[in-house]
């Protein structure tokens, strides 16, 4: 497939996502204005906080775990699964990275441990789905809680930091991911996320496994007829998805200064699994689209701090994020806007 023809197929989804973002921003402005805030000043602060000067590093850093968990959801969606188990895999990825690097003081060891534990943590959901028909929404949401408490317990016991009651042991200096920009939180983690997205893209669209996974997701009966085992495809989907989520947890701890450790109550790894669902939707469940959607959400999160200084509460950013996701989810929204213009032109 030549790259240019491939790009043409992305035109419509891209336009749809951009439109959704604009609608989200517009409705967000109206909400701000109705609530008595200065919408222009708030947006200016938001944009400055996200893109101005060194702030862009913060945006990319904040986008990193979102990109990886969005990939988890996207792989599921492309293979007919609604896998919302990224959250639990993120916790374990973080725990594994902290634990393993205490022994093997090497960034690669940390990254690999995240990949491995993420895949392993998805196995129960995969087995339940394939052998007992348990719906993955039910199993993964329950497994998320199991993961939360096991990870919390491990953070407080085996990985507890004797010198700091508010966090776990830090990642040893030799195993930390190098920073890309000094005095920022932007590290190699972002590069890892982008590479992971590209790898997943290649798997899904340029390997036989990906072809078989997508076929199973779109039409399991046709897959079976085509000599594909749809159950095996599901297991693969869970495993690969678990890997990127586990990776998200690992790099989130290995690449974020200054603490390089898991905070009390898993606060610095909490919620990325769920936020990733929205990122995946805005990125049209496509690994490459997700990179950009992840950066957008990273920007909103990074800019929110500065916007807060204009008096707008932090939560308002979540409102805008929510509106964007809803706008993306409305099918045919673009047609609604484009068709009247087309008719007018004729």
């Amino acid at each position: 497939m030549s790259f240019s023809t491939e790009l043409r197929g992305y035109g419509k989804p891209l336009a749809e996502s951009v439109l959704a973002i604009l609608i989200g921003a517009l409705i967000g402005a109206i909400v701000l204005w109705l609530s008595g805030y200065d919408a222009v000043a708030a947006y200016k602060a938001l944009l400055e906080g996200a893109f101005l000067g060194g702030n862009f590093s913060e945006t990319l850093s904040k986008s990193t775990p979102l990109i990886l968990t969005a990939i988890t959801f996207a792989i599921g969606a492309r293979t007919g699964l609604f896998n919302i188990g990224a959250e639990g895999a993120v916790y374990f990825g973080a725990i594994a990275a902290v634990g393993v690097t205490q022994v093997l003081q090497n960034p690669l060891a940390g990254v690999l441990s995240g990949l491995l534990i993420g895949a392993l943590w998805m196995l129960p959901a995969a087995v339940l789905k394939v052998y007992r028909g348990v719906h993955e929404v039910i199993s993964t949401i329950m497994l998320n809680w199991i993961a939360f408490y096991i990870a919390s317990w491990m953070a407080l016991s085996v990985l507890a930091n004797p010198n700091n009651p508010n966090s776990t042991l830090p990642i040893p200096p030799g195993a930390r991911l190098p920073l890309l920009v000094q005095n920022s939180t932007l590290s190699m983690a972002f590069i890892i996320a982008v590479v992971a997205s590209i790898v997943v893209y290649v798997i899904m669209w340029h390997t036989r496994l990906g072809y078989e996974l997508r076929t199973s997701g779109q039409n399991p009966r046709a897959a079976e007829y085509g000599g594909i085992n749809p159950k095996a495809a599901m297991v693969w989907s869970f495993l690969i998805g678990g890997m990127t989520a586990g990776l998200a947890g690992a790099v989130q701890i290995m690449g974020i200064p200054p603490s390089y450790s898991i905070s009390q109550g898993l606060a610095n790894v909490y919620g990325y699994g769920f936020d990733g669902i929205g990122v995946s939707l805005v990125g049209r469940n496509h690994p490459l689209g997700i990179i950009f959607a992840g950066i957008l959400f990273g920007a909103l999160n990074a800019g929110a701090t500065q916007m807060q200084q204009t008096g707008v509460p932090l939560e308002m950013v979540k409102v805008i994020e929510g509106i964007i996701i809803v706008a993306v989810a409305v099918p045919g929204l673009l047609d609604l806007f484009v068709k009247p213009f087309r008719r007018g032109a004729q």
Partner: peptide, 21 residues
């Protein structure tokens, strides 16, 4: 529509179903 083809996938992708290996 339910077995012979995967409607949302491309003509190319459908043209090799059962031969992809």
């Amino acid at each position: 529509t339910h077995m012979g083809l995967i409607l949302d996938m491309t003509v190319m992708e459908n043209a090799i179903l059962g031969m992809q290996w």
